[in-house]
Simulated scan of single mutants.
Amino acid sequence: MRERLRHRRRRSRSRDPHDRHRLRRGHGPRRAEGGHGLLHDRRRHAHHARVHPREGTAHPRRLGRVPELLPQSELEGITGFHNYPEFNLEHILEVGPDFILNGLGYETDLHDKLTPIAPTYTYDGFDGGDWRDKFVKLATDLGREDRAQAWLDDYAARAADVKAELDAQGISPVVADVSFWDGQISVGCYSISCLVFADLGLEISPLADGDGDGAPDGEGTTLSLEQIGELSGIDVIFNGMSEDGSDIITNEEALTSNPLWTALPAVANDRVYGYNYEMSYGSPSGQDGLLEIIAKALLG
């Protein structure tokens, strides 16, 4: 699982040559984490560097811009810089952060290179676990449990509202997160999408169960172009794409020219929806955003 996650992350680099190793130079945004950020706003006095692939990677044509899934007004004036293919430790030092949040814990020698620059909190954001567990632990360790709980409560309330509306309207499609890469289709729960699916009580395609234990997982199922017909049991497809939407799966020529793909119910009925793949790595902003995308797709 862990190696698969890292492999997926490496694959994402080819979509964005600047990769997700991104450091945000900022001033401790109050609400950087989906409206309940864990870092105080110290706009005039403090800098925080974040070595974290989940949030903060701009589209390559928009380098330096905060991704649209994040609260723009709260992050006004914050820019990013290249931190790939090598960690740009000199630039981190130049930024002069007061605190570094490092989500690349599997880079075992990185923590000791960062701590001389500033106090550093390190964890592995790619260990395959639920990102919310790490979020709560981080909040607890930083003495900001109330902010984490506030977001968890707000999210749970909104998810409950959406689920109630789906139930009231009798909307119960089979859903799946589907991606296309290197001539193959993948169905799985690498993204946070399955967390939201589950919160809404939606039926997730059994193709997302890669290890056969009856539960969706990050391994999922990989299909060749000849096996596309196996997706016929999926009513609604969600697909991670870049911020501008240009690489949504419905634009893939290898699929659009394949009659097996165009005959799929989800495709024929125009039930394929994209979401910003920056959401995939888990964050309050991403979870909130994807919940709204799924709600709009299913409820209109």
Rank of each mutant, 00 (worst) to 15 (best):
L260E: 14
D209V: 04
R9G: 01
F180S: 06
S205I: 11
D177P: 03
N251R: 15
R11D: 11
M279C: 10
A268W: 03
E107H: 13
Q287A: 13
S205D: 09
A176Y: 01
A118L: 04
M279N: 12
L63Y: 06
L299C: 09
F99G: 02
V66F: 02
A208I: 00
V136I: 11
D130F: 15
P116R: 06
I248M: 12
L104I: 05
I171L: 00
G188A: 12
Y275G: 05
G210P: 03
S12C: 12
L70Y: 04
P17A: 03
G35D: 04
T122G: 02
G80S: 15
G286L: 09
R8H: 03
Y106G: 08
D109S: 14
S14N: 14
L93R: 15
F99S: 02
P173R: 00
S12K: 01
V162D: 02
I248S: 09
A148K: 02
Y281L: 14
L290D: 06
N88K: 01
H18C: 02
G170S: 07
G183R: 13
P216C: 04
P216N: 03
S205M: 10
G35L: 01
H82M: 09
A215H: 12
C194K: 06
T79R: 15
R54G: 13
E145Y: 04
G233L: 03
A150N: 10
I185F: 08
G212M: 09
G28L: 01
E252D: 12
S12P: 00
A266N: 07
L225R: 12
A58I: 02
D217L: 07
E3P: 01
A148C: 14
R4M: 14
D154H: 09
V187D: 05
D288K: 11
L114E: 03
Y155M: 11
R61N: 13
G77T: 04
L207Q: 12
D288Y: 04
D161R: 15
E278A: 06
L114G: 03
R2H: 15
W131Q: 02
G56E: 02
V174N: 08
E203D: 14
E33H: 08
D244T: 08
Y106L: 05
P259M: 05
G77L: 09
V187M: 01
L69T: 04
